[in-house]
């Protein structure tokens, strides 16, 4: 039954834990079975189910790019039972991994286009997978200009500081706009909410796709702001988050109307979102 049992996690080991903020850590994992690791492939935007045995399982976005073949990363905020347990683990600990699950950002369709990423807080995690994919040497030529607008509550809450404040900034054809909600002494950058900053930056919609992830309320206002800037619904993608237990379309709790987010999501075009009942 093993090879076909989608509910059976595969043992994985935490290779490295990178503290991102006070309550977010990035866990770098490898599957214990070398063959399985070599065969692992995920797409940007897909999900993985992590197990802490004896505590439970929870679904997370994969935050590393598929181009990073040697590991799989998850950036996880300490929130509930499973995430607390994860945060107590150290490098070398074993966890369980199922997946990858769900659809992904349609990066084939994005070829030849400019990309605008809008993220809030831990919502940058799934976008990061795509950003690094697009910025990877082997893919960079396929895409145009990359704009990243990222905000968090405070300086401390900014995730992936190495990328946001340094790595991505240095990439050619890439602009990063960073903002925090309230002024702080050590912060010389922009202060204000993401949707407001977006209006200020006023990216043009021509030949561009916008990709959003963040808290539900931020997503809502960013979508409105983008439409005001002239983006059509077809140009906007977002990821939706619902509680999941199985990840494989059986347990029935991540439905929005007739769609299961674990199968037909988490990435939705705004046209599709408009057709879904507002129950997410």
């Amino acid at each position: 039954m093993s090879h076909e049992n989608p509910l059976l996690p595969r043992p994985a080991t935490i290779q490295k834990i990178i503290p991102e903020t006070g309550d977010v850590k990035t866990f770098r994992l490898t599957l214990d079975d070398a063959e399985a690791m070599a065969a692992w492939h995920h797409e940007p935007g897909q999900l993985g189910m992590l197990s802490v045995f004896g505590v439970g399982e929870a679904m997370f976005s994969i935050s590393s790019s598929p181009t990073k073949r040697e590991y799989i990363e998850f950036s996880i905020k300490r929130m509930g039972k499973v995430t607390r347990a994860l945060h107590e683990l150290e490098a070398g600990c074993q966890v369980g991994l199922r997946g990858p699950y769900g659809n992904h950002f349609p990066y084939e369709k994005f070829k030849g286009k400019d990309l605008l990423f809008v993220g809030g807080g831990i919502g940058l995690a799934p976008l990061r997978s795509l950003i690094d994919f697009v910025l990877a040497e082997e893919n960079r030529g396929d895409y145009g200009r990359v704009e990243i607008l990222y905000g968090a509550r405070s300086y401390d809450d900014l995730c992936f500081k190495d990328d946001v404040l340094d790595g991505w900034v240095r990439q050619p054809g890439t602009v990063v706009y960073t903002t925090i909600d309230q002024a702080e002494e050590r912060w010389t950058g922009h202060v204000g909410f993401v949707p407001a900053y977006l209006k200020e930056v006023a990216p043009t919609p021509e030949n561009k796709y916008a990709l959003i992830c963040g808290p539900p309320v931020m997503i809502k206002f960013v979508m409105q702001a983008l439409q005001k800037l002239g983006f059509r619904e077809e140009q906007i993608y977002s990821t939706l988050e619902l509680r999941m237990k199985c990840g494989i379309g059986k347990c029935g709790r991540c439905n929005i109307g007739s769609k299961f987010v674990c199968l037909e999501g988490p990435v939705f075009n705004m046209v599709e979102i408009g057709q879904l009942p507002p129950e997410f």
Binding site: M79, G80, K81
Partner: peptide, 9 residues
């Protein structure tokens, strides 16, 4: 049961 965060989980 399994209410997230209920009494620290």
């Amino acid at each position: 049961r399994a209410v997230p965060g209920w009494q620290q989980g």
